[in-house]
């Protein structure tokens, strides 16, 4: 066997299996770069673009329905064209992506916040606690998250005035999606916790009378969180899709602060009259964003835990 002659920390890092797998997966590298760029564009929007697409005062109706710059009639100021109210499409996409990402990330955090503790408790204690939690999760799992989110949204819409609803629409959306997807996190942490609770270090911790809460927090949680995070990566992609779908259906983010889904909904009505760019670019951005996150999630799953599904 030939020994590797390169030395130093960098070489060890590069030679590591995970780094190796990453560096030899061009799709994963591209997906990561795209994801990072999208984050930068979304959260850097106020600095990166001078347009404020959702301030009605700044819009000029004379600029309405401008096509992208490379089509005849397009102007450089509006690179991807404008919509029916003269909003710059590129800027709208940047702000829209920001909303999509915020909703996606926060709702996954909420799902984990509910699912992980319940899963650990179910797995660690077993018995009727386990049965109760998992039965509930099973029942909820049979109903698609999008339907649950629709229901929650519909209920809040009914029980409050439309002005108030518009203000809290985004938090409601986050809560709806978050509640709708917790069972899968509970399932995966539960199976992890069931394995961990039989380990010797847990027995040792019990022996020295460590409080149960501390055992769960210090010993069980760190050992079950890994697979959960991999599932969460794909969960972000799913949450972004759910958000976009709800917004497209007109029950998600209101048009005053549109997300990608809202933009697609607005643009959809112009599709038949030929202004394809109003809906195409937000849709394209959404697909690329979700695809990139999915690709990263897929790679993480294959690399760290081939058996996980």
């Amino acid at each position: 066997m030939k020994n590797l002659t390169t030395s130093g920390r960098w070489a060890t890092f590069v030679d590591h299996d995970i780094t190796y797998s990453f560096l030899h997966s061009p799709t994963t590298i591209i997906a990561s770069i795209i994801t990072i760029l999208m984050f930068v564009a979304a959260f850097g929007a106020p600095i990166l673009t001078s347009f404020t697409p959702f301030d009605p005062g700044s819009l000029e109706l004379t600029d309405a329905f401008l096509p992208p710059v490379w089509e005849s009639g397009g102007i450089e100021k509006h690179f991807l064209g404008t919509d029916g109210q003269g909003r710059d499409i590129l800027a709208a996409i940047m702000y829209g992506t920001q909303i999509s990402l915020v909703v996606g990330l926060l709702s996954v955090l909420l799902s984990m916040g509910i699912g992980v503790p319940l899963g650990i408790i179910a797995g660690y204690f077993g018995g009727w606690v386990d049965t109760a939690i998992m039965r509930f999760a099973d029942i909820q799992l049979t109903i698609p998250p999008i339907l649950i989110a629709l229901m929650i949204d519909g209920v809040t819409r009914t029980s409050m005035s439309s002005e108030l609803h518009e203000v809290i629409a985004i938090p409601v959306l986050i809560v709806s999606i978050g509640i709708a997807s917790w069972p899968q996190y509970a399932r995966i942490t539960r199976s992890g916790a069931m394995v961990e609770r039989r380990k010797d270090f847990v027995a040792a911790a019990k022996l020295i009378q460590t409080p149960t809460s501390l055992i769960l927090l210090r010993h069980i949680l760190p050992n079950v969180i890994g697979p959960t995070l991999i599932v969460a990566t794909i969960g972000v992609a799913v949450a972004i899709i759910i958000e976009a779908t709800l917004s497209f259906l007109g029950v998600g983010v209101p048009p005053t602060t549109p997300s990608l889904g809202t933009l697609i909904r607005i643009g959809n009505s112009f599709l038949f009259s030929g202004e394809w760019w109003i809906t195409f670019f937000p849709a394209f951005t959404l697909v690329i964003l979700v695809l990139s996150v999915n690709l990263i999630g897929d790679w993480l799953r294959d690399t760290f835990n081939p058996k996980l599904r």
Binding site: L286, V287, N294
Partner: peptide, 22 residues
């Protein structure tokens, strides 16, 4: 299929309408 999972249903619908109907 990964692209398929990443395409929201409504985007597929819009795409198909644009191609086959419009």
């Amino acid at each position: 299929s990964l692209v398929g999972v990443s395409l929201p249903t409504f985007v597929i619908g819009i795409l198909l309408i644009y191609i086959f109907a419009v």
